[in-house]
Amino acid sequence: MTDDGTPSPPPLLSARDLHVAFPGRRGGPPLRAVDGVHLDIRPGEIVALVGESGCGKTTLARALLGLVRPTRGQVVFAGRPLEYGSRALKTYRRRAQLVLQDPSGSLNPRHTVYEAVAEGLRIHRHGGDEREAVARALSRAGLRPPERFFLRHPHELSGGQRQRVVIAGALALDPELLVADEPVASLDASARGEILALLLRLRTELGLAALVVTHDLGLAWNIADRVAVMYLGRVVETGPVEDVLTAPRHPYTQALLSVLPEAPGAPVVLTGEPPDPTHIPSGCRFQARCPVLAGGEAARAGVADRCRTEEPAVLEGGGRAQVACHWAGARVAP
């Protein structure tokens, strides 16, 4: 349900109990990069997927685009399960486009801007006027007048302009969904703000949905409708961005928020590193680093044993606020 009580639109893209595992080294246990994820993205909605490096965010994003095949579970787009034949994937990738972190690495230095934007049109055999489609995409990405950029090469552009060219290449195919993996991580502060404003404008003007993968909760606050916080292959907290970021319930989300410059109180410094995804611990996967468990708060709430032995349930993919934490559940229990 939406805030005014009307039914929510059906998801454009859904992950259903998604698992992605890679073979372990020398025949060892598999690496469980994505370990049971439900996630929905609705038409025109921006969802931020947040977590530390190595938590599985990029693998999940690639699986949602069909670039990595799930070990178990299902990706559903526009009500239909994703098929992995070459023709089906080619059709899907017209509708769901990837925007990568590093525009310099995404663009061939020998190609002009025109060639970079036209590449997808040529791969998918766009039937219309190619020059007009390239110009329209560049204009939508904020590079105006577009003809002024046709013959330029990447080294002649600023970092923000290069990222706009990458976005224009995605927009040329008129997609319904963008998956942006750390889209502003390599940019300076002013360019970051411009690209975020562009993504918001594209949502408003074109109805584009977006999954924005980031380690930066501040970015999520500025751009997202909903946020999903990921730890060691699983979403541990999700919900409307205002709910999650103003009143975080999971100790991991609280720690991530505490290091933002505007956060009240002292930063929460997590000890140690995330566990090896080939040996995910029993019980709560955050237990080895959890300040609530280490500080005795979980014991006082009567859930310390559950934290060590009982894995929290996998969260649903819907829009309501949810948390996978025994201690957070005990705090709101009657």
Score class of each variant (00 low, 15 high):
99 V>M: 10
222 N>C: 09
63 A>S: 15
302 G>W: 11
121 L>R: 08
224 A>D: 04
109 P>N: 04
106 S>R: 04
8 S>K: 12
115 E>N: 13
213 V>S: 07
228 A>E: 05
5 G>V: 10
37 V>G: 09
166 V>D: 04
21 A>S: 15
38 H>E: 15
107 L>Q: 02
133 A>R: 15
290 C>M: 06
3 D>L: 15
160 G>Y: 09
201 R>P: 05
39 L>M: 08
282 S>G: 15
226 R>M: 01
114 Y>R: 13
183 P>H: 11
79 G>D: 13
301 A>T: 04
62 R>P: 05
239 G>V: 02
327 W>F: 12
68 V>H: 14
48 A>G: 08
226 R>Y: 00
266 A>P: 11
314 V>K: 03
220 A>F: 01
151 L>I: 01
139 S>T: 14
190 S>A: 15
89 L>G: 10
187 L>E: 13
231 Y>M: 04
270 L>K: 04
79 G>Q: 13
234 R>M: 11
11 P>L: 05
50 V>I: 04
277 P>M: 10
55 C>Y: 08
96 A>C: 09
49 L>C: 06
184 V>R: 05
280 I>W: 11
11 P>I: 06
317 G>T: 09
76 V>W: 13
208 L>I: 02
57 K>D: 06
113 V>T: 03
130 E>S: 09
145 P>S: 02
179 V>K: 09
320 R>M: 06
236 V>T: 04
297 E>P: 02
239 G>F: 00
29 P>M: 09
112 T>H: 03
198 L>V: 04
1 M>F: 13
41 I>M: 09
304 A>S: 13
38 H>C: 14
275 P>C: 12
290 C>P: 05
138 L>P: 08
179 V>L: 07
158 S>F: 12
74 Q>M: 14
254 Q>T: 08
88 A>W: 08
245 L>H: 01
144 R>C: 08
144 R>S: 14
47 V>S: 07
329 G>F: 00
282 S>M: 12
192 R>H: 07
89 L>Y: 11
247 A>I: 00
149 F>N: 01
59 T>M: 12
22 F>P: 05
32 R>V: 02
316 E>C: 11
313 A>R: 15
83 E>I: 05
20 V>P: 07
271 T>G: 14
76 V>P: 14
225 D>G: 12
6 T>E: 12
278 T>P: 04
72 R>I: 07
137 A>I: 10
327 W>Y: 15
75 V>M: 10
332 V>L: 03
309 T>W: 04
134 V>K: 08
182 E>N: 02
75 V>L: 03
315 L>V: 06
193 G>I: 10
296 G>S: 04
172 A>D: 06
32 R>A: 11
264 P>W: 01
268 V>I: 14
32 R>N: 05
280 I>L: 15
159 G>H: 04
268 V>N: 00
252 Y>L: 00
99 V>Y: 03
231 Y>H: 12
27 G>W: 14
156 E>Y: 07
316 E>Y: 13
251 P>A: 02
276 D>C: 08
19 H>F: 15
330 A>R: 07
251 P>N: 00
